[in-house]
Structure formats: C-alpha cells, structure tokens
C-alpha cells in the first residue's frame, strides 16, 4: 500500500512537470494556428470587438500565364482601441478545401496589380492594426491583399483573418472571386 502511494505521487509529480514545461509550447502552438474558425456567411463578421467586411474580391488571369490567377481581396475593418489591443495584429490567408494555405504577396510589384484590380484604382496596403494616432478612437480602415494561386483552384476558398491575440480563433469568410481574363 505504501509503495502504491509512492508510485501515485511520482506519477502525479511527473504529470505536473510535463504540464508545467509543456504549457508554454502549447500556448506558442495555439498562437500560430487557427483551429477554431468562426464561419461567416454574410461577408461581414466580428471577433473580439473587431468588425470585418469583405468589400471586394476579384481574380485576374493573364493570357501569357493562364495557369496562374492573382486574387485581390479588400477588407473594411471597424477598429476600436479595445479591439486593437485584443487583436494585436492582423493576419490574412486563403485556404482551399484541401487545407492548402496561401499568404498574401509581399513585394513592391503587387502595388500595380492591386490598383488594377480594385474598383477605385487604389491600394490601401496590407491589413495592419498599427495605431497611427495615440488619440485615435473608433475608426474604419481598409486593407488590400493580393494572392497568387493556380487558376483551377478558385472554388471553395475561404479567407481567414486572425490576430496574435485571437488565435486559435479566427474569422472565416467564403470567397468566390469574379474572374477577369487579361490579354
């Protein structure tokens, strides 16, 4: 009976040690994954005080490279100071039903493509919740993202939006971009 008590104590201590050491790793893993996505059907959704609307979505396929499509997505984001503090930053990605993930293009060449695909010929830049003005209260900002994808993979896409402060929670929007063929 005494040996059993010792064994139980040792097992309990071992489990406590594993949980104590593993907790930061688990938190780290959770802060980078989006496994609790909130499916948004209407094109607008809220998470932790941030209200996001997908206002534009378009895909362009150029004749010289018909296997590739450039997909433009514009977001309108209503930000409050509390939401900004809760989200900390903003990450946007596209996913297909097979679990493949596309991140936005991040190069100087994307500016012209976004201006060409957007309805007003403007590029508001990538999604960022950076506080431009310390006194800023509630404000509405816009963000433009450009993705490079295979042109035969534009069906069943979902746009994921999350922040360091929300993950593993994320907003997930259904995306069906109108396709423009460029010569």
């Amino acid at each position: 009976m005494r040996q059993l008590a010792w064994l139980a104590t040792a097992t309990l201590l071992f489990c406590t040690l594993v949980a104590f050491n593993g907790w930061p790793a688990l938190r780290d893993l959770a802060s980078n994954r989006e496994w609790r996505a909130q499916q948004v059907q209407s094109g607008a959704g809220s998470l932790k005080g941030l209200h996001i609307t997908v206002t534009e979505q378009a895909a362009a396929i150029a004749e010289p490279r018909p296997e590739r499509a450039a997909v433009h997505v514009r977001l309108q984001i209503r930000v409050t100071p509390e939401a900004r503090d809760a989200w900390k930053d903003c990450r946007v990605s596209l996913r297909d039903p097979h679990g493949r993930v596309w991140m936005p293009l991040a190069s100087a060449n994307t500016d012209g493509a976004i201006k060409m695909l957007s309805s007003d010929g403007r590029n508001f830049g990538p999604c960022s919740l950076y506080r431009r003005d310390e006194q800023a209260g509630e404000e509405t900002i816009q963000a433009d993202q450009l993705f490079l994808m295979p042109s035969d993979g534009l069906q069943g896409l979902r746009l994921y939006v999350s922040g360091v402060g929300t993950r593993p929670d994320a907003l997930s929007f259904a995306i069906e971009p109108a396709i423009r063929r460029l010569r």
Binding site: D96, R100, W102, M103, L105, L148, M149, P150, G153
Partner: peptide, 9 residues
C-alpha cells in the same frame, strides 16, 4: 531571398 513559393504552382 526575393521569392515566395505558393501551393499549386
């Protein structure tokens, strides 16, 4: 250093 590689391409 200048490239990003994407699924399906």
């Amino acid at each position: 250093d200048t490239r990003q590689f994407h699924p399906g391409l």
